[in-house]
Simulated assay, not measured.
Amino acid sequence: MEKLFVDESIVINASSAKVWEALTNRIYSDKWATEFSSGGPQFSIESDWNLGSPVLWKGQDGTVIVEGNVTALKPHKILRFTVFDVRSSERPAVTEEDGITFKLSEQDGKTTLHILQGDFSVMNDGEKYRDLSTEIWEKVLPKVKSMAEQINNRIT
């Protein structure tokens, strides 16, 4: 079966360090993570973003909804972590490319943020979930862009 990934990019008028901050600092990640709630309870993401560390998506009451681990890390360049809905009893095998991958490449003061999420082909109705996730990332990426540009423009 063909692999199914969300594959989206956005150019951000900020350094990769500022984009990284918007992705990993809880003050900002909690703002973009809300897009994944689809009208349900708000999410927060907890992690220290070190290689092997847990990544926990929690509801407002502190219940873990999605869990994973950081599987690739090069600060300001690449961050990959697995994601498993703890409400599902099924955990498919994970390859090195699975989960959510953020790739950042900076040139001339602008950063291209590339998101890759999947592989959804291992799930029942994988195409449906890939398409739903694509819609969410199309809302998340402009939020990350806005926050990173605000961080970049603030006076320190």
Rank of each mutant, 00 (worst) to 15 (best):
P41G: 15
P41C: 06
P41W: 10
P41S: 15
Q42M: 06
Q42S: 14
F43I: 00
F43M: 09
F43A: 08
F43L: 10
S44L: 05
S44G: 13
S44H: 06
S44N: 09
I45H: 09
I45S: 02
I45L: 11
I45K: 00
I45W: 02
E46N: 14
E46L: 13
E46Y: 07
E46A: 14
S47H: 12
S47Y: 12
D48K: 10
D48P: 01
W49Q: 04
W49P: 01
N50P: 00
N50F: 05
N50V: 13
N50C: 13
N50A: 14
N50R: 14
L51K: 09
L51G: 03
G52L: 10
G52D: 09
G52A: 08
G52S: 12
G52M: 11
S53G: 14
S53M: 10
S53A: 15
S53Y: 13
S53W: 00
S53H: 03
P54W: 04
P54A: 08
V55R: 00
L56A: 11
L56K: 11
L56Q: 14
L56N: 11
L56C: 05
W57N: 05
W57Y: 06
K58M: 08
K58T: 04
G59A: 15
G59N: 11
Q60L: 10
Q60M: 11
D61G: 03
D61Q: 07
D61V: 09
D61Y: 03
G62A: 03
G62D: 06
T63S: 15
T63G: 04
T63Q: 12
T63K: 10
T63W: 02
I65G: 11
I65S: 14
I65T: 07
I65R: 08
V66M: 09
V66R: 02
V66A: 00
E67S: 15
E67M: 01
E67Y: 05
E67T: 00
E67A: 04
G68T: 05
N69Y: 13
V70Q: 03
V70I: 13
V70P: 02
V70M: 10
V70Y: 01
V70K: 02
T71K: 12
T71H: 06
T71M: 11
A72E: 15
A72D: 11
A72G: 09
A72V: 09
L73T: 04
L73S: 03
L73G: 07
L73W: 04
K74N: 14
K74S: 13
P75L: 01
P75V: 08
H76R: 08
H76C: 06
H76A: 04
H76L: 04
H76M: 10
K77H: 13
K77C: 03
K77T: 08
I78G: 03
I78E: 07
L79N: 05
L79A: 07
L79P: 09
L79R: 02
L79C: 12
L79T: 02
R80Y: 00
R80T: 14
R80F: 08
R80H: 07
F81L: 05
F81N: 00
F81I: 02
T82A: 00
T82Y: 08
T82Q: 07
T82I: 04
V83A: 13
V83W: 14
V83L: 10
V83I: 10
V83T: 08
V83Y: 02
V83Q: 13
F84S: 07
F84D: 15
D85M: 12
D85R: 03
D85C: 05
V86C: 04
V86W: 06
V86F: 08
V86L: 12
V86M: 05
V86Y: 05
R87M: 07
S88D: 15
S88I: 06
S88Y: 08
S88W: 06
